[in-house]
């Protein structure tokens, strides 16, 4: 396989890790430490940036063994072997995410679809049941006919 094809797989694994990693919450909570103060962000955007930061960290950290292999072997150019080492590093770093993905079937709604490995009764508090999500109408502030202010 060509190095660029392997790199696409590495990127996909890193993005998956950024989305599903259990450490995403930690990165999100310590965002005031690494996110500059001059970038005021809504919470949703901060979560998105946290996911990107985790993906970027996975990409660079998993590349260290591949870079050391290239330097120590004296190649100095990208080879398929080094890219495979990069891919293995990314998969190893993404193991918690892959375990999570495996445990929940196809993501957070997997439990609802009965693919969680827990049957139709997943452990309480671990999964989001979409059928219990409700859109609460805004409170009628003007108190008349419910058509807004």
């Amino acid at each position: 396989m060509q190095p660029q094809n392997i790199f696409v797989i590495v990127l996909s694994v890193c993005l998956l890790n950024g989305l599903l990693s259990p450490y995403l919450l930690v990165v999100y909570l310590i965002a005031p430490l690494w996110l500059p103060d001059y970038l005021p962000m809504p919470l949703e955007l901060r979560l998105y940036v946290s996911s990107l930061a985790l993906s970027t960290a996975t990409l660079f950290v998993s590349g260290v063994p591949a870079a050391l292999y290239e330097r120590l072997s004296g190649l100095g150019r990208p080879t398929s072997t080094a890219m495979y080492i990069w891919l293995v590093g990314a998969i190893v770093l993404s193991l918690p995410s892959l375990n999570r993905l495996n445990a929940s079937g196809s993501g957070l709604v997997g439990a609802k679809l009965g693919r969680s490995g827990h049957g139709k009764n997943p452990p309480p508090g671990r999964y989001i049941d979409p059928s219990r999500l409700r859109v609460r109408p805004d409170r009628d502030l003007d108190g008349d006919d419910g058509h807004g202010l």
Partner: peptide
């Protein structure tokens, strides 16, 4: 550069 793969 030492810890970044040459592909970058």
């Amino acid at each position: 550069s030492f810890i970044t793969p040459a592909y970058v």
